[in-house]
Design a protein around this nucleic acid. Structure first.
Lengths: 125, 125
DNA sequence: CATGTCTTGACAATGGGATTGATAGGGTTT
DNA sequence: AAACCCTATCAATCCCATTGTCAAGACATG
């Protein structure tokens, strides 16, 4: 009921310029360009060649941040994981995020459906 | 009828001491101990605490070597990939090895049967 | 017994990756 | 014009991976 009014609210719609995106994921704009050079993210471009990141892009970047910052995986490892996911055509990364989040606080018993609080907390790309 | 004579020929049977294992995978013994410290390999031990690597261990190490040397993945990435495979309970890494080998040259029309020379070329753990 | 190989632990050198940062020259938007 | 974007480059920083060595001790075999 809430938010279903605009069909435009597609998570694949490019909206954030690089400075905003960088703020959203707590990284330097430089870093985001590097991710793109490495082929890990492919933000859309305006007709005048300006990067626009979608919500999906943000989540993808949050995955990269999680893997690199929290788990110590390098970009080559991230690439391998993404490649694997794409090749298998399934959400395999989620199986990793469990390990990353659990173990610190004992994650309250979550019922399926109440998920997604802030959009950015759990990158379920 | 060749080779099926000994039921002992189990790939999980510990046989190689570290110096031999290191030679087999073209790495320094030091490196293998590091892999073990990182929890990536768990070779068996003799009653007198000497490491014995099985054929499976060797293949696992060859996977690590492939991922690190050929693909640039670091040990944290290797751990993530192994963890993923174990968690999903399926051979997902093979999907990566294809890309690593194929894709460069257009793979000449190989007749099936000439392959698999050394056992160690394709770690199909 | 003596030699060689194993064990753990520590220390170091090398090379490379990840991230941030600054800079320059130029385009876009308001 | 000001503030943002673009590409490209150079650099500093820190950390990781790998190899190497040294030490002190346990084990096996000739």
């Amino acid at each position: 009921m809430a938010g279903a009014g605009r069909p435009d609210r597609d998570d694949s719609r490019p909206v954030y310029v690089i400075s905003v995106a960088a703020t959203l994921v707590s990284a330097h704009p430089r870093t985001l360009r590097i991710y793109e050079d490495e082929g890990l993210v492919c933000p859309a471009r305006t007709p005048s060649n300006i990067r626009l990141y979608s919500e999906e892009d943000i989540r993808r970047i949050l995955w990269i941040r999680h893997l690199t910052q929290d788990r110590g995986v390098n970009l080559a490892g991230v690439r391998a994981l993404f490649e694997l996911e794409e090749r298998l055509g399934m959400r395999i990364l989620e199986a990793l995020y469990d390990e990353g989040t659990r173990g610190r606080h004992a994650e309250q018993p979550d019922e399926p459906g109440i998920h997604a609080p802030h959009d950015h907390d759990l990158p379920h790309l």
